[in-house]
Design a protein around this nucleic acid. Sequence first.
DNA 1: CAAATACTACACTGTTTAGTTTACTTTTCA
DNA 2: TGAAAAGTAAACTAAACAGTGTAGTATTTG
Lengths: 202, 202
Amino acid sequence: MEKALTLTEKKRLDILAAAQEEFKEKGFLGASMDSLAKRAEVSKRTVYNHFPSKEILFHNIVKQLCDSFSQAVNIEYHADKPLDEQLHVAAVNEIRLLESDCFRNLNRITISECIRSPELALSTLEHLGQQKDGLHVWINEAMNDGRLKKADANFAAQQFLGLIKASAFWPQLFMNQVFPTAEQQKTIADDAVLMFLARYRA
Amino acid sequence: MEKALTLTEKKRLDILAAAQEEFKEKGFLGASMDSLAKRAEVSKRTVYNHFPSKEILFHNIVKQLCDSFSQAVNIEYHADKPLDEQLHVAAVNEIRLLESDCFRNLNRITISECIRSPELALSTLEHLGQQKDGLHVWINEAMNDGRLKKADANFAAQQFLGLIKASAFWPQLFMNQVFPTAEQQKTIADDAVLMFLARYRA
DNA sequence: CAAATACTACACTGTTTAGTTTACTTTTCA
DNA sequence: TGAAAAGTAAACTAAACAGTGTAGTATTTG
């Protein structure tokens, strides 16, 4: 019973997949419902039977991509493990997230719209924000545990992620640079940890 | 003889100013030549007499904004001055640049287009790149001078800027957060210097 | 099997838009 | 001052596009 997909369900998925491609390539304004329907090999009318408007379809795509982040980048604080080891795991997880197709697609689709639509920016962040900010909690606990210098945990988390994204996110998104190799990723992670602990280790 | 602007020159400037606003608010696709002409208080035909197409007008705007960065963020290495002092100047200059209207406008206008137009990304970077990367030179000299640990100077510069932009650029661009106050700016600069030197000071 | 549901092609509306044409007025400058 | 250059309003073309209506075909399901 693996392919118990009714035709309607299959069409719906085809439309969502095609729409994701279309929006990714052309942005919201540039995307065309006709082109999108052809891409999905579906009648344009069917698209509108599933999604009443372009905007609603767009929001469904964003929602779908947000939802695909079940694997949170949460990190649990362990008082008995070395800080660098734990931080390194966080860095590697973050890099893996930045590299993942779904995350890159989400950003390619939403980020340019976010500049001109604060509501989209907010709702996306909110939808994502539930699980996103595990790191500042970890930092906070390590500070309270006396193993990191007391400071603003949110700011520190922002710095840590900034170190990583400066090499493994922004240049790829805007200058379509290639993603760092495994070796480069290791350098980025190692160095972020090194720098962070050089500054914050108690 | 201060207002020796011929009418044609004045119209041209009006058009450029209006176009900058229009593109900034609506992006390339969203901008309308009719709306833009009204904004400039100029006949649509006049717009086309000055700029043969929307695309050419757009590129003129980008060029104009790029050219307005005569004040490079260059930093000269001084062997006899403290590193933290010199770096702090660099950080403050960078933050001032990130805060400046022309830089923010440039980014608001170009960045979302860069995602879908590698050529624009490249040409803009190139146009800007001449003066942009003074920092890695400074770092390199300080490393050769034995005052910083030997490492990849470009990577280190990227880290330093990443620390700053994580707080004073990306959140403002995409989540339209307010720009840090003078006090916050000082924290950001101080902390970037602190963290950088904690990691790289020889 | 039959009724309901969904899909399809295609024509259509109404709007927006980049860019042009025209006939006329204003500014420039030799 | 008068011809050339530049500006103007307004109507226009041609294309694209979001979204709808229709009539007929395929699929689902009780």
